[in-house]
Simulated assay, not measured.
Amino acid sequence: MTSTFVRSNPGLLPASRSAVAKAWPAAAAIVLTIFLWWLATTVLSPEYSLLRQTAPQRVLPAIVDLYQRGVLVSDAALSLWRLVIGLAIAMVIGVPMGLLIGLNTRIERAATPVVQFLRMISPLSWTPIAIALFGIGNQPVYFLVAAAAVWPILLNTVSGVHAIDRGFLDVARSFHATRAEQLRVVIIPAVRDHVRTGLRLGLGTAWIVLVPAEMLGVRSGLGYQILNARDQLAYNQVVAIILVIGVLGSAVDFVASRLPGRTFNNRADG
């Protein structure tokens, strides 16, 4: 009966084979990585080395323990919340500034040296100033995350404005569209994909900055938990939190890559 079903649905088997063919390289790479991790920390490391604490058979129970204690979920949620707030601040600053710079040649010439200078400064180097301005707490973390994410968003917005087909703007002007109408109907839809790309790039940088930023005065978050586990010499928990940071970062990047975005050309075709 199974063979009859397969013969009557010939598209099912190739599709399943295609899914397996796409999935197995990634699955094999993950298994190989875990094996090399186990080999380095269990077989090759000295008997009393701290590396033995970071072996998979000790790290995975540590993840379960952190979860059962309620630490993992609450601190991961706080870290994600700080990331969202910092990204929102970066969007509020970066997108309007990018539109302004991209639409005005004189402003672009004036702003380019300043932007290039500021974006080359490590966001973490602003830490003393952020603490002096905002004190200890969430505000310095928001500042550092926004400082990390704002430049990719701004520069990609400028790039999106430059990529607009000027014919669309000429058509809008021929219909006597105001500047606000051009911005709403032509420019913003056209730069949407570029803004999404900038957000994704900024998100990666912001996530990297977030963890050390949480080691600078807050008493919650994944970065703080790394310091807390280190002070207790619980290196299995340190690696457990590092794994969680990697998984969450990959998940956030995946969500960002699936954000809706349509270019003006696609909108016009529709």
Rank of each mutant, 00 (worst) to 15 (best):
L227Q: 13
L227F: 10
L227R: 11
L227T: 13
N228S: 12
N228D: 13
N228G: 02
A229Y: 04
A229L: 07
R230L: 12
R230F: 00
R230M: 13
Q232P: 01
Q232L: 12
Q232S: 10
Q232I: 01
Q232N: 12
Q232R: 14
Q232Y: 05
L233F: 15
L233C: 05
L233R: 14
A234T: 00
A234E: 14
A234Y: 07
A234L: 12
Y235Q: 08
Y235E: 02
Y235P: 07
N236V: 00
N236L: 08
N236R: 10
Q237G: 00
Q237E: 13
Q237C: 01
Q237A: 04
Q237W: 03
V238A: 09
V238P: 05
V238C: 00
V238I: 12
V239M: 15
V239Q: 10
V239G: 04
V239T: 13
A240P: 08
A240D: 02
A240F: 05
A240V: 06
A240H: 09
A240I: 03
A240W: 02
I242N: 10
I242F: 12
I242E: 04
I242Q: 13
I242T: 15
L243Q: 06
L243D: 02
V244L: 12
V244G: 08
V244Y: 08
V244E: 09
V244N: 00
V244K: 03
I245R: 03
I245S: 10
V247C: 11
V247H: 02
V247I: 15
V247Q: 10
L248G: 03
L248Q: 03
L248A: 13
G249Q: 05
G249E: 07
G249C: 07
G249M: 03
G249P: 04
G249H: 03
S250M: 12
S250K: 14
S250E: 10
S250N: 13
S250L: 14
S250I: 00
A251L: 15
A251F: 09
A251R: 02
V252W: 09
V252S: 05
V252I: 14
D253T: 08
D253C: 02
D253L: 11
F254V: 07
F254W: 15
V255F: 12
V255C: 11
V255K: 06
V255T: 09
V255N: 11
A256M: 03
A256S: 10
A256P: 06
A256Q: 05
S257R: 15
S257A: 15
S257I: 06
S257Y: 08
S257P: 06
S257W: 07
R258M: 09
R258N: 11
R258E: 09
R258Q: 14
R258D: 04
L259N: 05
L259M: 11
L259W: 06
L259I: 08
P260S: 09
P260Y: 00
P260N: 07
P260M: 10
P260V: 08
P260W: 04
G261H: 09
G261T: 04
G261D: 00
G261E: 01
R262Q: 13
R262L: 10
R262D: 01
R262A: 09
T263F: 04
T263N: 11
T263Q: 06
T263L: 05
T263C: 01
T263E: 11
F264E: 01
F264G: 00
F264D: 07
F264H: 01
N265F: 11
N265E: 15
N265C: 05
N266Y: 00
N266G: 13
